[in-house]
Design a protein around this nucleic acid. Structure first.
Lengths: 343, 343
DNA sequence: AATCTGAAGTGAATCGATTCAGGTTCGATT
DNA sequence: AATCGAACCTGAATCGATTCACTTCAGATT
């Protein structure tokens, strides 16, 4: 049983294909009578529009591609979710691909999206793919960078100011009396990591008190790497133990927390404060609820999608950089020493 | 600058469009000479295949739709990931939509996938959509149910035996000396929840020792609901405290764990054992590493996709139900009372 | 009665990749 | 030399929705 085409519908309703198309696309220009008959026919035949034919003719689709860096990180899950919400209110679907920090897959998905003639592309880039995105643009497919500031201003971007976030986190640690801060994060190819560290350094330098900061490098932003980093910190001679840790993201922080609790010699927050970044859902659910720099993740997705749609409808728009400020969320893991603080 | 079409490529290379198509689709039937010239031309013109035209002609695409119940749950993230991996090794892309337990969105995505003529649909159903799936099937679009046994055998499914899983979890609690078990879960519209409880009841009845089990209902399978349920349990008179909790999934379990630790009167695992279901990544990273029933989540996704592809290539295949057994993962949260067990 | 107007409708051309019946070339075989 | 077949190539027809120049016709205007 072949699917019904627009021609079948036209025949069944006793009108021309043009009229059927008008019923579907500009209902104003059709008499009530035809309208009804066409709808009947559609119902009877179970007709469903063939998107391929429509797309071929129109040269564009109602799909948007999203190339995500790390689908396992709940932070990106929230961003995708926001984009999806916004998209579905515009009748647009999000096609989505995971790169897992793999250059080949990043390219694969961009090719795929180009073949599919998506309306536009959201991407949290891993490698430097500006040239690739330029080419897409000449094809009429705009792109918006997500969670990454567009340094050269060639594309619109939606991100969070990681430098400010890093500064706020470190200032919070200093204000609550900490003086020896360890920054845990890596790899340093990831822009956000270096920015957060840079921000923390600013806070340290601006401090009226003398504050130390040292760096513990990790190979990835995962729970496992966080736990490993924790073990390394614990194995230091006791007098070199920090009294605060700033983790580049919450996954690391959760790993660190686990390592510290298992070891048991340094209590959080009594002996050592711990703060993460992203404020994923699991941060507040940790055994010691985790302080964190909240990113408005859903909002990032929504905004990116909205900007993308604006650019598709007016290609002359100049790229604009949207930067949100992160927000300090204080929970028990950074309570000051004397405090019995619960959250 | 209009994008180059296959005709432009043919002209540029001095061959016919048919030959260009052959280069792209059956490289064996083309001389090395033409091959090279066509590839040159493709390079020069920056040609990219128009997927819409190809799909229109072929009547089918190389895309698969995945309708996911709860994109925020890391368990589904892992399933999607597995499906994606398998798909990409077949040159197939996964289009993915989140229903968030919303009937309207479920229908929306199915409509969308039908218009797009996807190859097939993976779905973890929320409402009863068998009729809708039947219609898709008459259109040549097969569907595979994910994480849900197909009761009437009309569709293939890939799931985990939740009854057995529930039994194993409860047996483990009983074997390690627990006698008063609380089952935390809900809503009971979700099949998995009732199955897991049913399994636990079987274990209790089969036990040679007298074992109590009672049910603490939740409104959703989330961390927040878990914490709330924990508070309710703690507020009971002391002699009615359970000595073990079986949570319907890990999100609940993590919430429960947090509530118990914050309160501090019941130690895990000394006073109360805690086991979850799914074995998401955060389970092992919890402050008290969480015992759980592991579901082979990635495998579920891979398998579902593989079955789907088989059904697309041979529509006469009879639906088959694939059921995995969950696996008990013992960590510290269910260590026997005397033990200093660490994991 | 002749003419015009606007609303409603028609149907052929179009988008670009694929397919396949038919054509050409050329070396091997008889 | 004639015949054959394999290898390779050609190009028109096709998929289905959209578009737009064109037709139709009821009713208004002169």
């Amino acid at each position: 049983m072949a699917a019904a085409s627009i021609r079948d519908v036209a025949q069944h309703a006793g009108v021309s294909v043009g009229t059927v198309s008008n019923v579907l696309n500009r209902p104003g220009e059709v008499s009530a009578e035809s309208m009804q008959r066409v709808h009947r026919a559609i119902e009877d035949l179970g007709y469903v529009r063939n998107d391929a034919a429509r797309k071929l003719r129109a040269g564009t689709s109602s799909t948007v591609g999203f190339v995500v860096l790390d689908g396992q990180n709940p932070f990106f899950g929230d961003v995708v979710r926001g984009a999806e919400d916004e998209a579905s209110s515009h009748g647009i679907a999000v096609l989505y691909g995971n790169t897992d920090e793999d250059v080949a897959r990043e390219r694969l998905y961009l090719d795929l999206f180009e073949e599919q003639q998506v309306r536009g592309v959201l991407i949290s880039p891993y490698s430097d793919i500006n040239p690739r995105l330029e080419r897409l643009r000449t094809r009429g497919i705009p792109a918006v960078l997500v969670d990454r500031f567009s340094g050269d201003g060639r594309f619109s971007s939606v991100s969070v100011d990681s430098v400010v976030g890093g500064r706020m986190a470190a200032e919070h640690l200093i204000e609550t009396g900490r003086r020896r801060i360890a920054f845990v994060g890596g790899p340093f190819e990831i822009r956000q990591v270096t920015d957060r560290l840079a921000g923390a350094r600013v806070a340290v330098e601006n401090s009226t008190e003398p504050v130390d900061i040292d760096v513990v490098a990790t190979a990835a932003l995962t729970v496992a790497e966080g736990a490993a980093a924790g073990a390394r910190i614990i194995s230091r001679p006791r007098r070199e133990w920090p009294d605060a840790i700033f983790a580049a993201n919450d996954l690391l922080a959760l790993g660190l927390l686990q390592a510290l609790i298992v070891d048991g010699r340094m209590l959080v927050p009594e002996d050592i404060a711990l703060i993460g970044f992203d404020d994923i859902a699991f941060a507040s659910a940790a055994a010691v609820p985790l302080s964190s720099m909240r990113q408005p993740s859903g909002m990032i997705g929504r905004t990116a999608l909205r900007i993308l749609l604006e650019e598709t409808s007016d290609p002359t728009l100049i790229p604009r950089q949207t930067v949100f400020l992160p927000q300090l969320v204080v929970r028990r893991s950074t309570a000051a020493r004397g405090t019995t603080g619960k959250t």
